[in-house]
Nucleic acid binder design. Structure first.
Lengths: 193, 193
DNA sequence: TTCATTTCTTAACTTAAGTGAACGAATTAT
DNA sequence: ATAATTCGTTCACTTAAGTTAAGAAATGAA
């Protein structure tokens, strides 16, 4: 199980035994039940997450309505904006499934970064890469219609459509659940002809 | 003029004289005319930009249509995704105004990062911060209507509405120029009542 | 197992964005 | 200075998303 984390890291930098042990000794692995809330809106937090197995989602509550903006699954990392800005969180994080993840806090990171420069390099590369990926996702979102976004998701993350409830998928696509339902039957109709 | 860059950097890390000189000696300052294309779709590039004065925009050409996805103005940094992924660029970058900026390439960065660990720290902090900011922008975009997005922009970046052509603003907001025009007059009508 | 709640779909209606076209205004090129 | 584009607005029409409501299906709790 821990090997998933180290396989992931090894794609970016190669760690010495000392460095690997330093990370293991931090004792960051957690197992959380479906439905668990990891972060509440209004709370302050210093915790970052890396999903080993399972799925977590981030959502806002606006006008009493849940707006899901992201899902994180196997091998995906999340540092909530509130950790960076040091202000109370604007959103919630909760577990969609029973999930195994790592939880690391920013104090820990400062310490290990100063001890092991290679770890700082890892963090830099990771956030640069995530920034570029997210930029492309944002651009695709802006330049396409809800229907195109859905078809795109079907291509790129078919697993999400299986494991995530429709109404959460809908707000992830920037529309209402009814619209997603309609859009799906529209696509089906087209496929028949 | 160079002080703008160092004022910016000093918000994140404090540089020694040696470190400052190392950056100055890279000779990264450029002055570019309005209309200049900095990067073409299909091209490979290793260049990152930091805007000192002026404005640059990124845009795609899809079905023969320009889709503007971002503007970078004073004190904003841009590393195109193609620099990270090492693949040909999906988009164009061009200057909306006469612009002064820095151009640094990734080979340079690798070198200076290994010489001055503090510089790597700067890069890490910057990309973590940008990642968080962009996440919030993306979330706001997803959870709001075109009209809300426009009003939001009016609050947060009123300068853009002045300096950027309407049709470029429109695709930045994810809509057509005609819709932006209509939406604006709708808002004006509401304001009268 | 049953009851309650949540989720998904469908439908009718409203609202707003997309489309194609026209026209004046502004900008750019010659 | 003049001609040629490009840009912004308006309009009529089309298409799709938002809204409200109702009912069926699935899920979870007692």
């Amino acid at each position: 199980m821990k090997s998933i984390l180290f396989d992931f890291i090894s794609k970016y930098v190669s760690l010495t035994e000392d460095e690997t042990n330093a990370i293991v000794s931090l004792d960051i692995f957690r197992s959380v039940k479906k439905g668990t809330t990891l972060l509440e809106a209004g709370q302050k937090s210093k915790d970052s997450y890396f999903v080993i197995k399972g799925c977590i989602r981030t959502y806002y509550v606006l006008d009493g309505e849940e707006k899901t903006t992201a899902f994180y699954t196997e091998m995906e990392a999340l540092t909530p904006p509130c950790v960076i800005s040091k202000t109370p969180s604007e959103y919630y994080i909760s577990c969609l499934e029973d999930t195994i993840l790592t939880v690391s806090n920013s104090d820990m990171e400062v310490e290990i970064n100063s001890k092991f420069p290679k770890f700082e390099t890892l963090c830099r590369i990771l956030s640069e890469e995530l920034l570029a990926k997210q930029r492309i996702d944002f651009d695709e979102f802006k330049t396409s219609s809800p229907e195109q976004r859905y078809l795109n998701l079907l291509q790129k993350r078919p697993d999400l459509i299986q494991r995530v409830p429709q109404h959460q998928l809908a707000s992830y696509l920037g529309i209402k659940p009814q619209s997603l339902s309609r859009l799906r039957s529209r696509i089906l109709e087209k496929g028949k002809e």
